[in-house]
Design a protein around this nucleic acid. Sequence first.
DNA 1: CTGTTAGCGCTTTCAT
DNA 2: ATGAAAGCGCTAACAG
Lengths: 339, 339
Amino acid sequence: MNLTIQQIADELGISKTTVHRALTGTGRISAQTKQRVLDLAEKLDYTPNSIAQSLRSKRSMTVGLILRGIMVGHYYSEILAGIEEVATNAGYVINIACSSDDSETEATIIQNFCRRQVDGIIIAPVENSFPGNYKLLQQHNIPFVFIDKYIENIPADVVTADSATGVKRAVHYLHTNGRNRIAFLNGFERNSVTIQQRLKGYREQLLADHKDYQLVIESDYFGKEDTLCGYSAMCHALQRLSPGERMDALICVNDSLAFGALKAIREFGLRVPEDIAVIGNNNDSMAEYVYPMLTTLSQPKQDMGRLAMRLLLHHLTDKEDTQYGFYSFPVSLLIRNST
Amino acid sequence: MNLTIQQIADELGISKTTVHRALTGTGRISAQTKQRVLDLAEKLDYTPNSIAQSLRSKRSMTVGLILRGIMVGHYYSEILAGIEEVATNAGYVINIACSSDDSETEATIIQNFCRRQVDGIIIAPVENSFPGNYKLLQQHNIPFVFIDKYIENIPADVVTADSATGVKRAVHYLHTNGRNRIAFLNGFERNSVTIQQRLKGYREQLLADHKDYQLVIESDYFGKEDTLCGYSAMCHALQRLSPGERMDALICVNDSLAFGALKAIREFGLRVPEDIAVIGNNNDSMAEYVYPMLTTLSQPKQDMGRLAMRLLLHHLTDKEDTQYGFYSFPVSLLIRNST
DNA sequence: CTGTTAGCGCTTTCAT
DNA sequence: ATGAAAGCGCTAACAG
């Protein structure tokens, strides 16, 4: 059994209220009894039961984190690292759960987090997330912030990256460098806001630069691993396209897809960047170690995690504040050897 | 405010015990009142407060997970995925925390988890983990299992991989293929059991195969990123060694180091595998997408996570069982293009 | 079949 | 300066 303040009180022949005062340093108490309590607590290795504290205070000092998949391109690991850092420093613990890109699972997790009285939630929502989820959170008065992806028209902070501008920059850079046949490689995820934004950036810049080659490659591969997905889609595309129809540059919606595409291009006997220039998205920590090193669009993932947690902390402290912001981190083009 | 069974009871003019019975389906209750309760609960969106349940039942349905670093070679992401899967299915939630390879931090996390009454812990301990940590857990009657790394002579289940045998197999394979100058590349982490085992495997197989070339490269780079560490160590080694002294094969203690080494070798103007064959360790999900594709020693990381969680569940259910096992997953040599 | 009562461990009035 | 008592929301033993 675990040690309680009652037991310490009994041991010393005083009341548990006094013990509590000694331990927390609140209220008036004589220096002497205080010391006696502290000594005994130290000796017996007393640790307060935070479940009881939570029940009383109605604060669990826990935040829920809902990611779409733990291994998705390692992308979320870095966000997690940022969140973890800020949360720990503020005394919060993270409950991690994984929606596996499934809206039912996501809903279940949210209900579970409500039962568990998490103080707040950071969520990277699935594409077709139920709006009811967020109503529930509001009813329970649990603040939440969206990270990476978000659902429109829901009052909450959003931390994301300006993907559209990033992709535009990439397209324009390729055009400037004499590439006129730029294709766009999509993964199995197609409807999320960020993906839509990237596609939009691609199309708009094509228009702005007055180019007429446009090719969106969508994978028919139904696994969950982007790298495989990119590999398979690119293999098919290269086989399908005649040399005259073939792209001379490829923008991938994320780096994992790009890694797969790189492999497919190599196996097809084409060279990167000579025959096809490749640009990724997300700056995966591996992008620098593939061959050739991948040019990619980079967003400060760890900073995004940090900010999301800080915003959440703010709303945890100030529950009245119903001001929400849309924080779009700049995306920069990191030029390496694949272009 | 959150809805409680008391409020439902008041609303219906019955006692909260009856409400409780209706909700949980325990004890005798008339079908009619039961239905009335369920309907109202449904209508009002009642969700039980699991903090209160935990206080009562002394089970938090939470397990703590302590990793050394979230992004270390993506290694732990995969283990996490395995653990998450089993934990979720069993109704447990994961509290994740990160020791950042620091023993003080690790100790703090463990104390924190005790306060929070986690039901069990899965831990990948830091090299110089305090034995006191585990005494504390025993005092609190909190079962724990070691994953990947472990501390010797502590009664607990260990889930790890048979690294020594794996490395031996790699060395022997290289010898069989005519490589006689095999070097071993170590990262900044040097004292953990698994690293020691790999080094031991390397030395023993050299002996067994009667070879006298032996070279352990240790990085002088003090960052925390293995890839950079491998890159820097290998750059220095190649500069330092005369062509006559140079290795013709390299075994790296993990894949991240190998990725860095690959880059260094390429930049030095040498070819892989013609000049230097490279073998990694861990089968990082990226190993297949670097160029050339990395031959590596592979361990079933996700399965390891799953088993660890299952073992923990067992001890959670049967607190009396003080039998512990040492589960060493086989390591297989995955031959790709870097050898 | 339903209700009363007590208690998990901690905090917070309100007395003394 | 210290203590008694009530209560957070839920559960379980015991009565009726």
